[in-house]
Structure formats: C-alpha cells, structure tokens
C-alpha cells in the first residue's frame, strides 16, 4: 500500500507578523517547524505502515510538501519520524498560491505518486483554513474523510474511520483512494528515532518543478489563485461591554428595546 502525507512548514511561533505591503507572512528570522497537525497525520501514516508490514504487506510512506528550498528541512524531519522518502515541490511558479492553487499542485504531484491513502493535518496553524486537504481530494476526484479521529478498519478497497463532527462522532466507510485530514486526538506522535535521523541525513530528496507535475503555469501560484487578500490585520482586542445597574423591570425594558433596535428580535 502506498501512503502519502502532505505537510507544511510553518513558523515555530504563535506571534506571526505580516508584511503590510504584500499581505503575506513574514518568515525571515523565524524558526520553522512541521505544522503540528501534520505531525499527527504523519504519525498515523507511519502507524498504518507499521501495522501493514507486521501483517506481511508492503507499505511505504512518502511525504510531500510545497514550499521554498528550505522546506527540505521539514521533509528530513518527517523522515526522522518514520517516513521512507519525500518529495519537495519547489518552483517560482508555485509562489503566492492560495489554497486552491496549492491543492492543485499537490494533487498533480500525487497523480504521479499514485497513493492509496493520503493523510493531511486538519489545518495549518498559520493559515487556519483547513481547505487544502479537501481541495486535493476534489482535484483528484478521490473520496475524502475530514477530521478523522480514529481509523477503525482498513482493507485493500476501503477504510472505515471515525470522524469528529460538531455533534459528536460519525463513523463512515470510504473507498480507496482517499484523502483524510486528521485531528490531534488520533494519536500521540513519537519522537525521532536514531535510525530515522540517520536516514533523514542520507536521504536524497527530489525537487519537482511545475513541469515535472505537468501543471500549466496559469493554474499555479498567484496566477492560479482566485483568492485575493484585500487586507490582513490583527483583530482588535475585545473591550469590556456595557454594564447596567437598576431595578429588574427597568433593566428588562431597556434590554428589550435594545434588542429591537438591533433588529435581533
């Protein structure tokens, strides 16, 4: 079974800064990490692989990311955590991609890799959109299962997963190939192993450009992105509300007229 994991390198901080000119994240001088949700995706992929191998089946985990050349570091870290190999999508043509163009590029790369299972984190901690995973599934016309909290069963044709939904859990069976996004309750990620670190150091990580994934430039990067970021700003801090004091009846009248005024009732 071929398993792929899509990861993103994100700033290793919660204090993100924006460039007001370009409306993009300032990444210079900030340490990077694998998006924490993607670490759960990777761990689950590696666990599935190990389980299959124990049963005598062949299984490999390939990690994929789109990013600048330094994103290779995140891929090496993924190998130290149990992935077998990795592919870096890096090309000027990919720059400025929104979630649509990003998921298109990743989907094109996955077409080449032909996976049975694709794992993604539920969202990235910098963009927080949660759109790339589902986007990949749509581009590839694969089934999708988002917010997966547990894999209940897996065979060669289908996977049964428990999804975290607003009301609780939903168990569904999905045919392969499938794109899954995972939530953090799915597992407890391991720390790197010594052999993993040595493999990570030795690994040759191919870099695929736009031409390698047969993606026309107009569908990539800023050009291929329907999203236009008008403005990025930090939301203002909530200020304390109004405080009324008085007799209950008087206050009730006051509240009722305010609600009417606001057209709430």
């Amino acid at each position: 079974m071929k398993i792929c994991v899509c990861i993103k390198q994100v700033p290793a901080t919660t204090e993100v800064k924006f460039d007001p000119e370009t409306n993009t994240l300032v990444r210079e001088g900030v340490d990077s990490q694998i998006n924490p949700f993607d670490v759960y995706a990777l761990e689950e992929a590696v666990r599935v692989k190990e389980r299959l191998q124990k049963e005598g089946e062949e299984a490999t985990v390939t990690v994929l990311t789109m990013g600048p050349p330094q994103a290779e570091q995140a891929l090496r870290e993924a190998i130290s955590l149990g992935a077998d190999d990795a592919v870096l999508l890096s090309d000027r043509a990919f720059r400025g991609a929104d979630t649509w163009a990003t998921s298109y590029a990743l989907a094109q790369a996955l077409r080449k890799l032909q996976p049975d299972l694709v794992f993604c984190g539920m969202q990235a901690i910098d963009g927080d959109t949660g759109q790339v995973g589902p986007g990949i599934a749509v581009h590839l016309d694969y089934a999708q299962a988002t917010y997966v909290a547990k894999i209940e069963a897996l065979d060669k044709r289908k996977i049964t997963v428990r999804r975290l939904v607003e009301q609780g859990y939903e168990v569904c069976a999905v045919r392969l190939p499938v794109v899954m996004t995972v939530v953090k309750e799915i597992n407890e990620p391991r720390t790197p192993s010594l052999r993993g670190k040595m493999n990570a150091k030795k690994a040759r990580i191919p870099v695929w450009k736009a031409a390698d994934i047969e993606a026309p430039e107009e569908k990539l990067g800023l050009q291929g992105s329907p999203t236009q970021v008008v403005k990025v700003f930090s939301p203002p801090h909530r200020e304390g509300g109004e405080k009324w004091t008085g007799e209950p009846e008087e206050l009730a009248d006051k509240l009722a007229s305010l609600l009417k005024e606001l057209e709430v009732v």
Binding site: T191, P192, S193, L194, K197, M198, K201
Partner: peptide, 17 residues
Amino acid sequence: EEQQMMREVAREIAEKR
C-alpha cells in the same frame, strides 16, 4: 555527528516524554 544525533534523540524523549 552520530553521537550528536543520539543526544538529540535522547533529549527529545527526556523533555517531551
């Protein structure tokens, strides 16, 4: 280099686990 890797691997277990 390998000994440094051993140290990093052990340190991560010490701190995280």
